[in-house]
Amino acid sequence: MRVAIGGVDPMLTPLNEVLERVDNRLLSPEADVRIWGTGFPLLDDALGGGLRAGTLNLLAGSQGEGKTTFALQIARQCAKAGQPVVFFSFELEAEVLVQKMIAAEAADHAPHSPASVYQVRAAFEGTDGGAGGLPERLSRYNGGLDALASVSEFAPRLHVHRSTTTSTNLDVIARTIKEVMVQHGEPPLVVIDYLQKVRPREQMAEEQAVTHVTERLKDIAIEFECPVLSISASDRAGLEPGQRMRARNMKGSTALAYEADVVLILSNKADIVARHHLLYAANNGANFREYSVLTVDKNRSGRTGAEVEFRKQFTSGRFVPEGSVVSEDLVDERVFVE
Results as ranks from 00 to 15, higher is better:
residue 178 K to G: 04
residue 232 S to K: 05
residue 168 T to C: 04
residue 238 G to V: 09
residue 234 S to E: 07
residue 184 H to W: 05
residue 200 P to N: 11
residue 186 E to T: 14
residue 200 P to Q: 12
residue 178 K to D: 05
residue 183 Q to C: 02
residue 193 D to G: 04
residue 180 V to Q: 01
residue 194 Y to V: 02
residue 226 C to A: 13
residue 236 R to V: 14
residue 184 H to G: 01
residue 187 P to C: 10
residue 211 T to K: 14
residue 229 L to K: 04
residue 198 V to N: 11
residue 214 T to I: 09
residue 167 S to W: 04
residue 225 E to D: 15
residue 178 K to T: 01
residue 207 E to T: 14
residue 221 A to C: 06
residue 177 I to Q: 01
residue 233 A to Y: 03
residue 223 E to D: 13
residue 181 M to D: 04
residue 174 A to L: 00
residue 227 P to A: 10
residue 179 E to L: 08
residue 180 V to W: 01
residue 204 M to A: 12
residue 171 D to G: 06
residue 228 V to I: 13
residue 201 R to K: 14
residue 170 L to F: 07
residue 176 T to F: 00
residue 184 H to Q: 01
residue 170 L to W: 08
residue 221 A to S: 08
residue 191 V to W: 04
residue 203 Q to A: 14
residue 197 K to F: 13
residue 181 M to W: 00
residue 205 A to I: 05
residue 231 I to V: 09
residue 235 D to K: 12
residue 172 V to M: 03
residue 185 G to L: 04
residue 224 F to H: 14
residue 183 Q to G: 00
residue 213 V to S: 08
residue 232 S to W: 02
residue 209 A to R: 15
residue 215 E to D: 10
residue 185 G to K: 03
residue 237 A to V: 13
residue 170 L to P: 02
residue 168 T to S: 03
residue 199 R to S: 15
residue 174 A to I: 00
residue 206 E to R: 15
residue 233 A to K: 09
residue 184 H to I: 01
residue 221 A to L: 07
residue 237 A to W: 09
residue 175 R to F: 03
residue 196 Q to G: 08
residue 176 T to Q: 08
residue 219 D to G: 11
residue 174 A to M: 00
residue 219 D to S: 13
residue 212 H to R: 15
residue 234 S to F: 12
residue 217 L to C: 10
residue 176 T to I: 00
residue 226 C to V: 05
residue 199 R to Q: 15
residue 203 Q to W: 09
residue 212 H to M: 13
residue 177 I to P: 00
residue 234 S to G: 07
residue 205 A to C: 02
residue 227 P to E: 08
residue 168 T to V: 02
